[in-house]
Simulated assay, not measured.
Amino acid sequence: MLNIGCHLSTTKGFENMGKEALKIGANTFQFFTRNPRGGKAKAIGEKDVAALLEITKNNNFATLLAHAPYTLNGCSADEKTREFALGMMIDDLVRMEYLPNSFYNFHPGSHVKQGVEVGINYIVEMLNTVIRPEQTTTILLETMAGKGTEVGRKFEEIAEIISRVELKDHMGVCLDTCHVYDAGYDIVNNLDGVLDEFDRIIGLDKLRAIHLNDSKNPFESHKDRHEIIGEGFIGIEAITRIINHPKLRHLPFFLETPNEVEGHAEEIKLLKGVYKD
């Protein structure tokens, strides 16, 4: 079975996100933990969460994915920005325990001309501060496209972060198809080679989720602009190979394409049609 979902808005509550996912043919979904451009988090209603958990249980949902806000930059050159990121992640991980055994994905951040190694040091320090042995949440580092001074454009950078996290059993990776293609990993013409490289450097056992996006820009553009499935430079043929690959097909796939919910429903229908059960 294809485990597929899209990004849904939390404004209507957790139960309604679960119902909306079912309505569009999804069996999982992604959501922001708080305002993606700010720091304020909406209060969690325990009954609302309980209703969602009942939906996920009764409908065999795959693991849910929470996304940290874009303002979380734990490797910023500004100390206050780093402190803000630390506090936000601590709070998010407490809140995530309302949804046990879920994923929490975040962008490693931008080192802002300090250098990659300095950025990695800050990220590792943040993760070693926030991760608790008893948490059920797995924290995912997202692969990045390499625009500006982003950390995470290379598998080696992701691997170094994970290797230096003390409680690394709570760590994983979310591979974004648009990002890795834009970063220079040719998943269109050499998917097996890219996966072999990922396995050699990071380990495929750490790959826990995939952001399934086409790309508005050509290979190695470092632009990070998502496109609707089949309408970009990655294309439906390559995406079909990705969702059917024996090393990937068991993972949950999350659409972050520039579509409304109705458009995501069409994409999910398309992907189910090319998925080989």
Rank of each mutant, 00 (worst) to 15 (best):
I161V: 09
R82F: 00
A62I: 04
S76P: 02
M126E: 05
A145Q: 07
S76V: 01
I162D: 01
K57F: 09
E134H: 14
I162K: 00
I55Y: 07
L64Y: 01
T56G: 11
N73M: 03
E142P: 07
E150V: 12
V116S: 07
T149K: 09
A66M: 01
E79A: 01
E160G: 03
M144H: 08
P133L: 04
A85P: 01
A68L: 07
E160A: 09
D78S: 01
G115R: 10
H107K: 06
M89D: 07
R95H: 13
A145L: 07
D91I: 08
G74N: 01
L93R: 05
G74R: 00
E160Q: 12
G148D: 03
E83F: 00
F84G: 04
Q135S: 15
P108C: 15
R153S: 15
I131L: 14
I131F: 05
G74M: 09
K147M: 14
R95E: 05
K80V: 01
V116A: 07
N59G: 05
C75N: 00
E134N: 12
G109V: 04
V124W: 05
E117N: 05
E125H: 05
T149M: 13
G109S: 11
I131W: 05
K113W: 07
I161C: 06
T149L: 09
L99H: 14
E79R: 01
E157P: 04
L72W: 05
V94H: 14
I55F: 11
D78M: 00
G115Q: 02
N60Q: 12
M144A: 06
G152Q: 13
I162W: 05
K147V: 11
E134C: 08
I139P: 08
V124E: 00
L72V: 14
A66S: 03
V130F: 06
P108Q: 04
K57E: 15
I123A: 10
H107N: 05
I55A: 03
I158G: 12
G146S: 03
A66C: 02
G119D: 01
T138E: 15
Q135N: 09
V116P: 00
H107I: 10
Y98S: 13
E157M: 11
T71I: 11
Y98L: 13
F61A: 10
D91R: 07
L72P: 05
T81D: 04
A66Y: 06
I158P: 00
L86E: 04
A62R: 04
L86G: 00
H107F: 06
Y104L: 14
V124I: 15
M88E: 14
L141Q: 03
F155C: 10
S102F: 08
G152V: 15
A145D: 06
E125K: 03
M144E: 03
M126L: 11
G109H: 06
E157Q: 10
T138S: 06
A145R: 10
P100A: 09
A68C: 14
L53F: 07
K57H: 15
N58S: 10
P100V: 15
R132Q: 12
T137K: 07
K57V: 14
T136Y: 13
I161K: 02
F84L: 08
S110H: 10
R153C: 14
T71Y: 07
K154C: 13
N73L: 01
L99Y: 00
Q114I: 01
